[in-house]
């Protein structure tokens, strides 16, 4: 039980009772080299026997998985960003509400920014200077990103799990023990990234285990091994953070920024962090996730006050007028 046990920078495995734990392992997903091939989704399912997620065309560009779930522990996001983006970020849905013809509004603009009528002649839009995030872009961009459980330093799911099914492994990763989970479902609203989910016919909660069985034998997780362009990199978290810091510098002009790398963020930094090319919410990620456990002491205090108020109320009720 260290100082930052509930919140703040921490090496989670020793804090969770592992004496001379191995170095903390994690993922660095560099989305600038992701080609959206979904090998990670398939390799993960083949290794872990994850059931398929149904055959539904979602119309979210090439994403027919629709985000992480109990049956998709890796999920590749696709965002088609038209060449011309008006100054402020506007939601495609809002654009739809503004009554533009349906076909155009829903033109697979990937929810992130939308077009005013692209001027015809192949290269729409004027040639605007520079390409910083949210600044107008002169060419079409297709963002891809393999989303995964963040294996947070302070994991909301793990903290709230009442059966100890979710636990911190010696590698600092967060794993659901399928022989313990009774499907209480509490981890599901507790995850600030909306990762973990209950599998309908099975009842239990499922998510990425960072291939706990493989890394236990010194192997590489299935998705990291399969990833053709090494967008998914597995390794010691400190090494990955150093590598990512170098990488983000090189790609500054493309709007590159790291996400989940900072031990001082709202979850104490992620065990699986990312290099993104646009705002997190464009990929369906929360811009400023904070683990609820941070406010737990304050919450219990409030509950205590309310409890005292109750007791007082009852006392007053009975001891009040003798009648």
């Amino acid at each position: 039980m260290g100082a930052n046990s509930l919140y703040g920078p921490l090496d989670p495995a020793p804090d969770a009772g592992y004496v001379d734990a191995p170095p903390r392992m994690g993922f660095f997903t560099d989305t600038s080299v992701c080609i959206g091939c979904k090998a990670c989704e398939v390799a993960c399912k083949e290794w872990n026997g994850v059931p398929d997620d149904g055959f539904n065309l979602l119309g979210h560009s090439y994403d027919n998985t629709g985000g992480l779930s109990a049956n998709s522990w890796r999920a590749v996001a696709f965002i088609e960003q038209p060449a011309v983006v008006p100054a402020g970020p506007v939601d495609a849905l809002a654009e739809a509400a503004a009554g533009r013809s349906d076909a155009l509004a829903e033109a697979g603009c990937g929810g992130a920014g939308t077009t005013r009528e692209p001027e015809f002649l192949g290269m729409p839009g004027t040639d605007l200077p520079g390409r910083t995030p949210d600044a107008p872009r002169t060419d079409f961009r297709w963002l891809m990103m393999s989303n995964v459980c963040k294996h947070c330093t302070h994991a909301g799911c793990l903290d709230v799990c009442p059966t100890g099914a979710l636990f911190r492994t010696e590698f600092g990763t967060v794993v659901v023990q399928e022989d313990v989970c009774n499907g209480c479902g509490y981890c599901i609203p507790a995850c600030p990234y909306g990762v973990i989910d209950q599998r309908k016919d099975d009842g239990r909660a499922w998510k990425c285990t960072l291939c706990y069985d493989r890394i236990g034998d010194g192997l590489t997780p299935a998705c990291a091994q399969a990833c053709p362009t090494q967008s998914i990199q597995y390794g010691e978290l400190d090494e990955l953070r150093a590598r990512a810091a170098e990488r983000v510098e090189k790609l500054k002009d493309q709007g590159a920024r790291l996400y989940g790398h900072d031990p001082d963020d709202g979850v104490g930094g992620d065990g699986a962090f990312f290099l993104l090319l646009d705002e997190p919410e464009v990929y369906g990620l929360p811009p400023d996730p904070i683990v609820a456990t941070r406010d737990l002491p304050a919450m219990w205090k409030r509950a205590g006050l309310a409890g005292l108020a109750m007791a007082a109320a009852v006392a007053v009720s009975f001891l009040g007028g003798r009648r």
Binding site: E41, E46, D52, D53, G54, F55, N56, L57, Y62, N64
Partner: peptide, 12 residues
Amino acid sequence: LAYLSELQPEMF
């Protein structure tokens, strides 16, 4: 194969 069919489920 289910794992590939679910990734691109319909002719478009």
